[in-house]
Write a protein that binds this DNA or RNA. Structure first.
Ligand code: MN
Ligand code: MN
Ligand code: ZN
Ligand code: ZN
Lengths: 124, 124
DNA sequence: TTCTTATGTGCAACTTAGTCGCATTTTATA
DNA sequence: TATAAAATGCGACTAAGTTGCACATAAGAA
């Protein structure tokens, strides 16, 4: 699925900014925040946020808050949980954990916080 | 355990601001953000944040980020997960779910996001 | 290919959470 | 009551995110 196909499928205009932005999210397979992305793009931050919102509306991108008061964005694949390390601030996609359900609730997102494998090792 | 005892136990000075702040967190048994608290207190926001940080260092208070880019604070009891509703933005403390562990990681915090019982009902 | 228009973009101004340095006040203790 | 360490208020600052508006551009019609 190319970026052009994704945009066309959702009936969005294919602009320079959108191609650039989706290209970056597609190329990195980890969640990125505005700070990570801004140095890689030319568009104004208003354009960044307006496009990101549109991508989220259209379920092209999803996002979550981290520890650092920043929102992180990634291409939406299948839903999966994230682990945020309190020590090194790394964010990991947990794509292989078994599903959790809470009676009566609909869960769309799970964020675990704590100490990642790497940092746990160094602590010893 | 009174507020005075808690402060004394951690060797902190018992100031007017600290008594006020802990009193509010103690009285509400739900997580509160600065916006919730500011109308109830007299202290400057710098004092608020400095004290909250100290309380977190001393494990009197714990906190997490919500959907709204605000950090929510609560008195630290036993560790428990939280559910944040994407529809009504309510935050619920999940004190009765069975523990989850991820091989190799230390989990200190779990945040579920999705649709709460109430909002799920209304959807139907 | 050119025209038309809805849509997208850049810019500047704004809001709000949170941080920091510094002068002044308050607490705990002797 | 005197003292010193710690806490506070204030003002300035940073950075994420939002909004209104004038101008630019993508996409479809002619
Ligand atoms: Mn992910
Ligand atoms: Mn709680
Ligand atoms: Zn780590
Ligand atoms: Zn709800």
């Amino acid at each position: 699925m190319t970026i052009e196909n994704i945009i066309e499928e959702k009936n969005l205009k294919l602009t320079v900014a959108r191609r650039e932005l989706l290209g970056i999210l597609h190329a990195h397979n980890r969640p990125l925040c505005f700070e990570d992305i801004k140095e890689k793009i030319n568009m104004d931050k208003a354009t960044f946020y307006r496009n990101i919102s549109k991508f989220e509306e259209e379920a092209i991108v999803n996002s979550f808050e981290s520890n650092d008061k920043k929102r992180y964005y990634e291409m939406q694949e299948f839903p999966h949980a994230h682990f945020i390390c309190n020590t090194c601030n790394a964010i990991e996609c947990l794509k292989n954990i078994e599903p959790i359900n809470l009676e009566g609730y609909i869960i769309t997102d799970i964020i675990f916080k704590g100490i990642c494998k790497g940092c746990k090792h160094e602590e010893e």
